[in-house]
Structure formats: C-alpha cells, structure tokens
Computed example of a mutant assay.
Amino acid sequence: MNGLSDIHGLDFDSSSFQKYIAADCDRLNFLRDYLSELGVKTSVIPLGEKKHLYVNFPSTAYNPMFKVKTIISHYDRVAGSPGANDNSLANFALADFAANLFKSRPVHNVRIFFTDGEELGAEGVSSQGAFALADLFRKIGITNDDVYVFDACGRGEVAVLARAGLDSKISGPFKKKFLDLYERTQNLLKKSMPNSWMTLPVPYSDNAGFLACGIPAVAITFLPKDEVSFYYSNLMSDKNLEKAVMNCRIDSDSKNAADLSIQKFKYSEKMPMTWRLFHTEYDNFLSLTPESYVLMKKILTQIAENKTIA
C-alpha cells in the first residue's frame, strides 16, 4: 500500500502530517507546537525576513572533543503545492528524531535547524534563507561543523548523496574539509544503508548557501530504485544533463525567464519522476513511500552516533 498510513507503529503521526501539508497551515508555528508536544524545546531565529527554527538541546548533549553535526531540513514550500516530499516528510522524521534524542539524552553533538526560504534559491543563492544562516555561522566562527542537509526524503529506498561541491574551484582548506566530510558521509551511508545508496548530480538545496559561504555541507535526498537507474542512464548518454540539473535552483548563465523555462522543459523528461513532482499539486501524501521515513531515521541515528575528533 502506498502512502504513510502503513507506519503508525513507528511514531509517525499521519493525522498531524495531513494538517501540516494542508494549504492553510502556518508551518512554522505548527512545527514548533508539534515539537513542543514531543517534549522538544525550540527557538525561532529571525534573519531578515526569514524565520528559522532551532532545537534547544541541553549543554550536556555536547562534548567539545568532537565535531558538532548540524542537520538542516527546510520547512518552507512553494505556494500551491502540498510539499509532502519537498520537504514535509523530512521535517517530521527530523522532529521525531529530535524527540528521541531529548528522551534518551545521549551526548550526541547534534544541532538541528528547520530553515525558511530554501525555495527562494531559484532567484540566486544569496536570496536563500540558509545563506544568511551560513553567513551568521561564518561571522561568529562556526566553520568546522559537519553540515548535513536533508531534502526530499519521502520517496524511494535509495539514499542519494549530492555531488554538489566536488567540482568546487575553491582550493586549500575549504576543499580539504569538504572532501573529508564527503568521504565520511559516504562511509556513514555505507553503515546505515550498505546496498542502497549512491552519489549523483542533484539540484542544490540549503547546501548551496553554506557552500557559498565557504562552509562545507552535503545534501542527502531519496529516490526510487527504478528512477535512479533511469536517471543514471540519461546522465551517461547526455553530457549536458548534469549541468542542467545543477542549474535548476541557482543562478543560470541566462537571466531571461523564458530561456530558463525552456531549459527546464528540455531536460525534464530525462530527470527522475520524483523531481518532476516538485512544486506541483502532485507532491502530495499519496506520492510518498513508507520505507523512506524509516531509512531517513536510520541515517540520522548514524549521524548522531558518529563521533569525529574536532
């Protein structure tokens, strides 16, 4: 059976989820109330016109010997779309994960942000809400976190690590730190999903804002297995496809809106069906797959348990 009604036994509140993806939902306040009911304390961090939600773990959750792991999941969505996969399921999985950490109270070194304004990235990375957050990190000297972005994790059983950042022309310490994080993330996926992950070109998410500020960040998304095979085959046969994918949510060479729409239309049939549902009415509850929620929580657990010397 498709949809999340299958997973009531996994602490997933599907009735709350249906309210969260309703057209009239105040998603920030809903998410904050939902977390509060789970016993999770939060703070709203306003940066410009954007409002990010931060989880207030106690100081006892952190050990300065180890790296802090910042986990990010945007809560905003495009008007007219339920945003079930982009990015509501990841929000709920991360909220339930935060609640589990609060209850068990381990030393986990995890920071969690639910960010605002990710969907504005199509207007340029500096308009993205995470850019201002990353810029704040940089200004106050938080540049050594491992930053993990979870976006569109509600469809499929294959975890996809975005290749964004690998082709960065920036060398020196940034490049070294990024490659180190990328390698460790691959090892993390091997442990949590040994036979069901890969690296692929993926449209930018909140990782774009952090990369633009010189802070290494990786993005993880999910895709169904058949869509991964289809997409990979198209990448091998069309060398222009990767560039088109990477330009989907950031500045393109062309500033002409008509040119941009033509480019997106030209390549859309070669991209995964999951991505074609983004920003439409079809990114709804019924498009989700129940195993995705479980698999995302496996990855989150691995992140929390992983300890890297600072």
Score class of each variant (00 low, 15 high):
Y62Q: 00
R163H: 08
A152W: 02
Q263Y: 10
Y34R: 04
E227C: 01
G80V: 07
F278N: 03
D206Y: 05
G80R: 03
F131D: 07
F114P: 06
K307S: 14
K298Q: 11
H52F: 10
T301V: 08
L179W: 09
D251S: 15
A152K: 04
D76P: 07
K50M: 13
P58I: 00
K225A: 14
P216Q: 03
I21K: 01
Y54N: 12
K139S: 12
T280V: 00
V160N: 04
S268D: 11
S292E: 08
L136K: 12
N306E: 15
G39M: 00
R249C: 14
D180W: 09
I142V: 12
F92K: 03
F178K: 05
F150C: 01
G9Y: 12
E281Y: 11
R249I: 10
G214Q: 05
V202A: 04
D145P: 00
P203W: 01
S36T: 13
K41P: 04
K191W: 06
G80F: 05
D206S: 05
V110K: 03
I142W: 09
S229N: 13
Y282G: 04
M193S: 11
F210G: 07
V149N: 07
F278Y: 15
R249S: 15
A152I: 07
H52V: 03
S268Y: 01
T60L: 06
L260D: 10
S237V: 10
K51N: 13
N29T: 13
K255D: 14
E123W: 14
N56S: 14
F265Y: 14
N284K: 04
M198K: 14
N2T: 13
G172C: 02
T289N: 02
L38Y: 10
A90M: 07
E269C: 13
T280G: 07
R77K: 14
K67P: 04
F66M: 03
V218T: 01
A244R: 05
K51A: 10
I112A: 02
K255W: 04
A258K: 15
I309H: 11
L35H: 07
Q128R: 13
